[in-house]
Amino acid sequence: MQDFLWIAGAHFLALLSPGPDFFLVARSSLAHGWRGATGACIGIALANGVFIAAALGGLSVLRAGSTAFLVVQLVGCAYLFYLGWLFLRHAGKSSLDAKSASGTAHWRDGLLMGFMSAILNPKNALFYVSLAAVLASRHTSAGAMVAYGAWMVLAVLAWDMAVALAIGSATLRQRFAQALPLLERLSGVMLIVLAVVLLVQAGSGSR
């Protein structure tokens, strides 16, 4: 029980830290309502599930300093630049008065974008590999590992859905109607800054 509380607490604190996934969910929720953001939320949760399964399964290919990890960092930088550019390019073009875009095509696009955002974030890999190393050192059983992994995937999904529900409410969307272009530009800038920081870290780590 103590291990579970430690894992759950550390994971929740990590979720509280805003990153690319948060900006993606927030932007989707403001532009399309919480239903329009469900695809992105599920995609993010699935990507986290991939990292969790790999880390708890003992896959060390994404350990810090490895070639595979450096590739993920560089591709992640490129994707963050791309997301930031999209946010800046489409700033002010989203209509908050439109009906929630919850159609199949939009949901599928959100799912893919959410998955790519999370799977190309090397900080996710580092976090789960670190947790897995701690659990391995405590000789955690396979059953407990599976339970912890399932909990973390559900926690990611629940947190992102909560963010989508809070930000995507009709009342809040109306209040943010005029501020949305500025928020989109700020989100775009933040994503590009994150990409630059990640690129610098990748460069220093490869030396």
Rank of each mutant, 00 (worst) to 15 (best):
Q2V: 10
D3T: 06
D3G: 08
F4W: 10
I7Y: 10
G9I: 00
A10G: 14
F12T: 09
F12M: 03
L13C: 11
A14K: 08
L16E: 08
S17Y: 06
G19R: 06
G19T: 07
G19H: 05
F22D: 09
L24T: 06
A26T: 13
R27T: 15
S28Q: 13
S28M: 10
A31K: 10
H32P: 03
H32F: 13
R35P: 01
G36T: 04
A37E: 01
T38G: 01
A45M: 04
A47D: 01
I52L: 11
I52Y: 02
A53Y: 12
A54M: 11
A55C: 05
L56T: 07
L56Y: 11
L59E: 04
S60R: 09
S60Y: 01
R63W: 04
G65R: 15
S66W: 02
S66C: 02
T67M: 11
T67I: 14
T67F: 15
A68M: 08
L70S: 13
L74R: 09
V75M: 14
L80C: 09
F81V: 10
F81H: 06
F81I: 12
L83T: 04
L83Y: 11
F87C: 07
R89P: 00
H90N: 15
H90T: 12
S94C: 11
S95A: 12
S102Y: 06
G103A: 08
R108K: 10
D109A: 14
G110S: 07
G110M: 08
M113G: 04
S117V: 13
I119Q: 09
I119H: 05
L120P: 12
L120Y: 07
L120V: 02
A125N: 09
L126Y: 11
L126F: 15
F127M: 10
A132G: 05
V134Y: 10
L135E: 02
A136Q: 15
S137L: 05
R138H: 02
H139F: 04
H139I: 04
T140C: 12
S141G: 13
S141W: 00
S141V: 04
G143Q: 08
V146P: 06
A147L: 13
A155S: 15
L157G: 06
D160W: 14
D160F: 10
A162W: 03
A162Q: 05
V163S: 03
A164W: 00
A164L: 04
I167F: 03
I167K: 08
S169M: 00
L172M: 07
R175F: 05
R175I: 03
R175D: 02
R175A: 05
Q178L: 15
L180W: 08
P181L: 02
L183N: 04
E184H: 05
S187I: 05
V189K: 01
V189R: 01
L191K: 01
L191G: 00
L191D: 02
L194C: 09
V200A: 12
V200R: 11
V200T: 05
Q201N: 14
S204T: 09
G205Q: 12
G205Y: 00
